[in-house]
Design a protein around this nucleic acid. Structure first.
Length: 224
DNA sequence: ACCCAGGGTCATA
DNA sequence: TATGACCATGGG
C-alpha cells in the first residue's frame, strides 16, 4: 500500500514538481531550426551526446537547411557520430532539411496552423509524435504536450495511467486537464525529465521526492 | 560488463 | 493492434 499519492491530478503533479525543482531552463538552442535538428538527434539518446554533435555541426557551418541538404551523407553521419544511430539520423536530418526548404523556411512555417504542421511533420521519415511535438512546442510555441517514456513512467507510478496507452491518448489527457499554455507545457515536460534524472533509490534518506513524505514508495524518478 | 539514454521504423502475426 | 528486432554512441 505504498500508493500514498493517488488522488493527484495533472495540475497538482505539475505544482509539486515545480515547487520542488523550480523553474527550468530548457532546450537551449540558437533558434527554431536548431531546436528541430536537436529534436531529431536526441531520439533515444542522452542530451550530452547530442550537444557534441551540435557543436561539430556548428563548427562546420552545417546548422542550416542548405548545408544539410548538400553535404554528402557519409560526411554528415560522421559529423553527428556522437549522437548514436548516426546513419539513420543523417538520413533523417537530410530529408527534414529538404522539407524545411520546400516549405519556404521559417517565416512560412510560423504562419502555419499547428495541427496541419504536425501532420506534415509526422509524414517525414524519422519524425514520430514525440519529435513532432518537441518541434511544435519548443520551436514554434504551439501548445502540444510532449509525451516521452519518462512521462509514462511517472504517471504510471503515480497511478494515473495504466501504462501502455497510445501516445495520442496520453497527450489528450493533458490537453483536457490543462489550459493550452505553451510555457506551462514546456516547463512541465522539462520538470518531468529533471525528476527522472534524480535517481532516488527508494531508501532511507530520500528527502528529495516531491511525491511522498520520507520516500518509502515507488514513485521516484529513476529507472526501476 | 551491464544498464541507461529527452524514439522511430519495419517485418511479422 | 501489438510485439520484437534493429539502429549505436558515451557515461555511470
Amino acid at each position: 500500500m505504498a500508493a500514498a499519492a493517488e488522488s493527484l491530478d495533472r495540475k497538482q503533479v505539475f505544482l509539486r514538481l515545480r515547487d520542488h525543482y523550480g523553474e527550468q531552463a530548457w532546450w537551449p538552442a540558437d533558434g527554431p531550426f536548431e531546436v528541430m535538428v536537436g529534436a531529431i538527434l536526441t531520439q533515444n539518446t542522452a542530451w550530452s551526446n547530442v550537444e557534441k554533435a551540435l557543436a561539430r555541426l556548428r563548427e562546420r557551418d552545417l546548422l542550416n537547411p542548405d548545408a544539410l541538404c548538400e553535404i554528402p551523407r557519409d560526411e554528415l553521419a560522421e559529423t553527428i557520430r556522437s549522437s548514436g544511430y548516426y546513419n539513420q539520423k543523417a538520413r533523417r536530418l537530410a530529408e527534414f532539411a529538404d522539407w524545411y526548404r520546400q516549405q519556404g523556411g521559417l517565416d512560412a512555417l510560423r504562419q502555419r496552423d499547428g495541427q496541419s504542421l504536425r501532420r506534415q511533420l509526422l509524414d517525414l521519415h524519422g519524425v514520430g509524435p514525440e519529435t513532432a511535438d518537441d518541434m511544435l512546442l519548443y520551436a514554434f510555441d504551439q501548445p502540444f504536450f510532449v509525451i516521452d517514456s519518462y512521462t509514462r513512467r511517472l504517471l504510471q507510478r503515480l497511478g494515473l495511467i495504466q501504462g501502455k496507452e497510445p501516445y495520442d491518448t496520453l497527450q489528450q489527457d493533458f490537453h483536457r486537464e490543462l489550459e493550452p499554455d505553451p510555457e506551462l507545457y514546456r516547463q512541465y515536460h522539462a520538470l518531468i525529465v529533471e525528476h527522472a534524472k534524480t535517481r532516488c533509490r527508494l531508501r532511507p534518506d530520500c528527502d528529495g521526492c516531491p511525491f511522498v513524505d520520507g520516500c518509502g514508495a515507488d514513485v521516484c524518478g529513476g529507472p526501476s
